[in-house]
């Protein structure tokens, strides 16, 4: 891709146009995106960092510099650690489940059979649906009184009494994980399927000729070649799962008794319910740093895998 010569590097555009103008054009074309991202993403991140060092609150109308006191309060705040634990648990379990189930789905769809196109189309439904709608839909499916899930489980005899799903401390987190896995796994499967399709057919055939069974072809040929795709897809999923907001906010609001509170919902409440923008910014900055660490961790792993594959 990079090897192809670009126009500007060749004879330069029309004779007569100044070199300065032709050099400026690409930067002028990049300017709107730069302004947009600078104003809406980059600047607010730094502004958040600054706010996190103040006691800004829309209630008291204070905005004084207080150094690292917000971060000290954060480390001592049991509600923060509660949300932190839930978020890490949610991220780990849902990413793992989504990757494994997604891989199984992708391997299945790799087979040729009639109706495959229709199934692949149906798999885009959970992805395209607004997350708020997904939350409400699972609220209805898992309703404690009239929910379809309770009815089906009762019909097949797995439970004798209706289970209180997202209304109870013990099951609420599981319900949210199920909803998230439902929504994101099919898309994960489609990504992995695209990855599988890049594995050269000749390699699979060579393995078969050498007498490898389906299982050993999978472990020794397909899986290693799929690894980069698996890691990249897993990273994006983990980063996304870590900031889960819509699902929790709409389905349980973080309850019951804070049992599903995650870092995003907790930060949102501190910001917009208590209006403590200083403390809220310390929280979201802590989240930003954690996300950067997750990305760096995955990135390092991916780089090493790719280098060893060369």
């Amino acid at each position: 891709m990079a090897a192809t010569a670009r126009l500007g590097e060749q004879a330069g555009p029309r004779k007569g146009t100044g070199r300065l103008a032709s050099r400026l054009t690409p930067w002028l074309l990049l300017l709107p995106v730069a302004v947009s991202l600078g104003a809406v993403s980059v600047y607010p991140i730094f502004e958040g960092l600054r706010l996190s060092l103040t006691n800004t609150s829309l209630v008291t109308q204070e905005h004084d510099f207080i150094g690292l006191r917000n971060y000290e309060a954060l480390i001592a705040d049991p509600l923060f650690w509660n949300a932190w634990r839930h978020t890490v648990f949610f991220t780990f379990v849902s990413t793992l489940a989504e990757t494994l189930i997604g891989l199984a789905m992708a391997l299945l769809l790799f087979e040729h059979f009639t109706g495959r196109g229709m199934i692949r189309a149906a798999m885009l439904v959970p992805w395209a649906m607004p997350t708020v709608v997904t939350s409400k839909m699972f609220g209805w499916l898992f309703d404690g009184q009239y929910g379809l899930v309770n009815y089906l489980l009762r019909s097949v005899g797995l439970i004798d009494q209706n289970v209180n799903w997202y209304g109870s401390i013990d099951n609420a987190m599981a319900t949210i994980i199920i909803a998230d896995v439902w929504k994101t796994t099919p898309f994960m499967a489609l990504l992995l399927l695209a990855g599988l399709q890049t594995v050269p057919k000749s390699l699979i055939e060579a393995a078969r000729i050498d007498g490898a069974g389906a299982w050993s072809t999978f472990w020794n040929v397909r899986l290693p070649l799929l690894m980069p795709t698996l890691l990249i897809a897993g990273m994006f999923r983990a980063l996304d799962a870590f900031r889960v907001f819509d699902l929790v906010y709409v389905l349980t609001g973080g309850g019951p008794a804070d049992s599903t509170e995650t870092l995003s919902t907790f930060s949102y409440k501190i910001l917009f319910s208590t209006l403590q923008f200083g403390y809220g910014s310390a929280l979201s900055t802590a989240m930003f740093v954690t996300e950067a660490l997750i990305a760096a961790g995955f990135g390092y792993f991916i780089m090493r895998k790719m280098r060893s594959a060369r």
């Binding site: 991202l37 809406v40 607010p44 502004e47 706010l51 900031r243 995003s264 930060s267």
Partner: peptide, 19 residues
């Protein structure tokens, strides 16, 4: 450009609200 898109949105919602 891509890495900017990976910023958690909760980290910018507060400052952006004030702006």
């Amino acid at each position: 450009i891509l890495s900017v898109s990976m910023f958690p949105q909760i980290a910018i919602v507060g400052p952006l609200y004030l702006i």
